[in-house]
């Protein structure tokens, strides 16, 4: 017992040392740095933590301390409607593979992260929305004329993000002879496309539009023939009571023109309009 106490004391002493070392280093660099530490945390109790993507230009992108993109704009609007002011919102990165787990564990209160509503996912979590209906599409070089749809990818080289099924789908449904490059992020796919090592990048059209807007300098274009329907919903923990309120907020955003404006500003320069037959969507009934 005594041994344990001593061990704990030693650990406490060591961590104090480490902490004080850090502290003094910071003081050296930025004299009043200590005061800002609590501002960004979610210690406020009444705040809301929203999961977004950090690496998708046009949808959810961390740019220094700023967060931009369509998902982020919708998230802010909805959070405001739910009664949270701007400084009560904390954004947190929710990578695709972790989204359900982070909702279930309470790491985030809701997720706006190109989160397609599927029956499988509905078994573990709830969805509000959809707030956007995307479709799988292709990003190609602006001067490319021989790729007008997924069937044209036979024998061509295609890039998609690791762990996404969009490339597999093209392979099984449209062009068996397509060669696949998988990268951890879309930015690397765009690099490979710009370098000419792949002919196309595939994922949801609005993501592609964001990429084209952010990276292309007008050299890249979205083909504009979506061949799937992805309903972006708001991920919520199972049996959440916020679904109705969120749907109301989404409807309001669409009605007052903020939705359309958000789409336009986030895909500026990409010559992109969302699939008009399906957009803007009407939120589905809550379960």
């Amino acid at each position: 017992m005594r041994k344990h106490t001593m061990g704990l004391l030693a650990m406490a002493a060591a961590s104090t040392l480490v902490l004080s070392a850090c502290g003094s280093a910071e003081v050296g660099g930025e004299p009043d740095g200590g005061g800002t530490a609590t501002a960004g945390g979610d210690g406020g109790g009444d705040g809301i933590t929203i999961g977004i993507k950090y690496d998708q230009p046009g949808l959810g992108l961390q740019d220094g301390a700023e967060y931009t993109g369509f998902d982020v704009d919708v998230a802010r609007y909805v959070a405001n409607e739910l009664g949270y002011s701007e400084d009560q919102i904390t954004f947190k990165e929710t990578p695709s593979a972790n989204r359900e787990a982070m909702l279930q564990n309470g790491d985030v209160d809701m997720i706006f992260a190109t989160y397609s509503i599927t029956d499988d996912r509905k078994e573990v979590i709830d969805f509000a929305g959809p707030y956007f209906i995307a479709g799988q599409d292709l990003l190609v070089a602006a001067d490319n004329t021989d790729i007008t749809g997924p069937e044209d990818l036979e024998g061509k080289n295609l890039c998609s993000v690791t762990g996404s099924t969009s490339a597999e789908k093209i392979k099984t449904d449209y062009a068996e002879g397509v060669q696949l490059l998988e990268r951890p992020g879309y930015a690397e796919c765009v690099t490979a496309l710009s370098a000419g090592q792949v002919d196309a990048v595939t994922t949801d059209d609005i993501i592609l539009a964001g990429l084209a807007a952010a990276n292309g300098d007008g050299n890249l274009k979205v083909v504009g023939a979506p061949f799937s329907e992805e309903q972006y919903g708001v991920g919520l923990p199972k049996d959440s009571d916020q679904c109705e309120a969120i749907n109301e907020a989404i409807t309001k955003m669409i009605d007052d023109g903020a939705w359309e404006e958000a789409v336009a500003t986030n895909t500026e320069g990409a010559d992109y309009t969302p699939n008009a037959d399906l957009n803007p969507p009407k939120p589905a009934d809550c379960a």
Binding site: T165, L180, E182
Partner: peptide, 20 residues
């Protein structure tokens, strides 16, 4: 290096679509 059919990638894909 884009060897997406190896274990870690397969596991990640499985997790993403079968979180339960």
């Amino acid at each position: 290096a884009s060897v997406s059919w190896e274990t870690a990638s397969t596991m990640k894909t499985m997790l993403e679509f079968n979180a339960d």
